[in-house]
Amino acid sequence: MLIEFKVNGKSYQIDVCPSMRLIDLLRDELGLTGTKEGCGEGECGSCTVIMDEKAVNSCLVLAPQVDGKEIITVEGLAEDGQLDSLQQKFLEHSAVECGFCTPGMLMSAKALLMKNPHPTDEEIRTAIAGNLCRCAGYAKIVAAIKAAADSTDQ
């Protein structure tokens, strides 16, 4: 089936198999391999992308559901080579270790800040509760998201 959608501001029209998952569409068809697969069943969150302003596990979204939608992936965060403040704060706050969960964390955080620019710690933790990190224990990630939210104020 033919679907039309946008990824990181760019329009696509692609003929896809209806059982194709969004993560495969992104990684295999569009070459956007920043989105990672850690479990394939929506538990680890490393494949999180933003679909119409909501964070979704791209391993649980099928291609037909993407028709007419606007997707943002980790590749869409930086603009003109300038890192998004979330990316910057993740680096400054030691919120990145092995980096495999990082794209998903960033996208969950981005979806939160798009909706709620001044989140509390609890709201941040809730927003990333679906993203597993085995290296850093979340504290640095929460601090980085908080710092990114604060930096947008200024």
Partner: peptide, 21 residues
């Protein structure tokens, strides 16, 4: 002091290729 990890920028932009990529 505190420094980001090697390849930090490529990790936050999704540009770093792991085996699966």
């Amino acid at each position: 002091r505190t420094f980001p990890p090697d390849h930090g920028v490529r990790k936050v932009t999704g540009d770093l290729d792991y085996c699966c990529d």
